[in-house]
Amino acid sequence: MENQRKIALVTGGSRGLGRNSALALADKGIDVIITYHSQKEEAASVVEQIANKGGKAAALQLDAGLVSSFDVFVSGLQDLLKEKWGREHIDFLINNAGFGINTPFLETTEEQFDSLMNVHFKGVFFLTQKLVPLIAEQGGIVNISTGLTRFSMEGSSAYASMKGAIEVLTKYMAKELGRRGIRVNAVAPGAILTDFGGGRLKQNQAIREYIGSQTALGRVGEADDIGGVVASLCSGDMGWVNSQRIEASGGMFL
């Protein structure tokens, strides 16, 4: 039975939505490989929590914005799969790694723009391209987008634009990978209380109250509101859901 357990790769899985997604996947009986950029101890903690749930997990370092490092990463992933699982393939890829910059359009620098582009779009494009041969038939990809592609908030023009590109890319991935039975969907969280973007939402009560007042369910989201959505897309119950943008925002700005 253990050999039949599916495996998910979650980029940026040491904290926030990635961490929560990894734990939610483990709750569904899916083994997890997470990546981390610099937070090695936090990644190890996630691996330990999954092991305590009875699952298998591992962590690999990845700079999601450095395309030239992807070949080495993929080679290390292949070695890990063989050594720990006796497998050559993963079943699911969760493209979650990212960071936020809150800067008005007129003040956004080329350096900021390029750093967001490298992680949130270019990195996702080329990492997925390299990982597709390792994704099993009938597998799945979940790309993390944002509610900011539907509604706008000042300071998010560059970040939201990258995520808009991800939503378009999701459709093309679904079209081209469908012949292998690989489903591709995007999850678009609303405002979430995490350390994302320097924890700006956590630190500003006025913004939290405003967003809560503009959300149908009356509050700001938490990481626990998102992980289960991601994990559900990796279950058989969602096997006919493909090429969709699923917003998980509690009904922000309806």
Results as ranks from 00 to 15, higher is better:
S152Q: 12
N96A: 12
S115P: 11
A59S: 08
Y210H: 15
E154S: 15
G12Q: 09
Q4W: 00
F105P: 15
N118G: 02
W85D: 02
A248C: 13
R208S: 11
G100T: 05
F92V: 03
L81I: 07
Q244R: 12
L62T: 02
M162S: 05
I90F: 07
M162P: 03
G140R: 00
S249A: 14
S249M: 14
V67K: 06
K53M: 07
L80M: 12
Q203A: 11
A160L: 09
G236M: 07
L106W: 11
A160H: 09
V229G: 08
G190Q: 01
D31V: 00
F125K: 09
A206M: 12
K28M: 09
S213K: 13
N185H: 10
S38K: 13
Q49W: 05
Y159C: 06
R200V: 14
H120S: 09
T108P: 14
N102F: 08
R179A: 12
A165V: 10
G54V: 00
I141K: 00
A26K: 10
N52S: 13
I101Q: 15
N52I: 12
K122M: 06
F113D: 05
V47E: 06
M162A: 03
K53N: 00
E222A: 11
N52G: 10
P104T: 06
T149L: 13
A22I: 08
M117F: 14
G29S: 05
G218H: 13
I207F: 15
I144V: 08
G199D: 05
I90T: 05
G65Y: 01
I211L: 14
F121H: 01
P189R: 07
R245M: 13
S152F: 10
A24M: 04
A58W: 06
T149E: 10
F196M: 05
V74M: 01
L66M: 03
L134T: 13
E107F: 14
H37I: 02
I7P: 15
A165M: 10
A24W: 01
L217I: 15
T109N: 04
R208A: 08
Q49M: 05
K53R: 03
V230E: 08
G140F: 04
T146V: 07
Q78G: 12
I135K: 04
V220W: 10
K171V: 11
D91Q: 09
T146W: 10
N3A: 15
G197T: 01
L81A: 04
E209V: 07
F121D: 00
N102W: 08
E88A: 08
L131K: 12
S232I: 06
G178P: 14
S157Q: 09
L81N: 03
L148Y: 12
S69I: 00
R5T: 06
L25H: 06
A44I: 06
N204I: 11
L193M: 01
A97T: 00
S45D: 15
P104M: 06
S45R: 11
R180T: 03
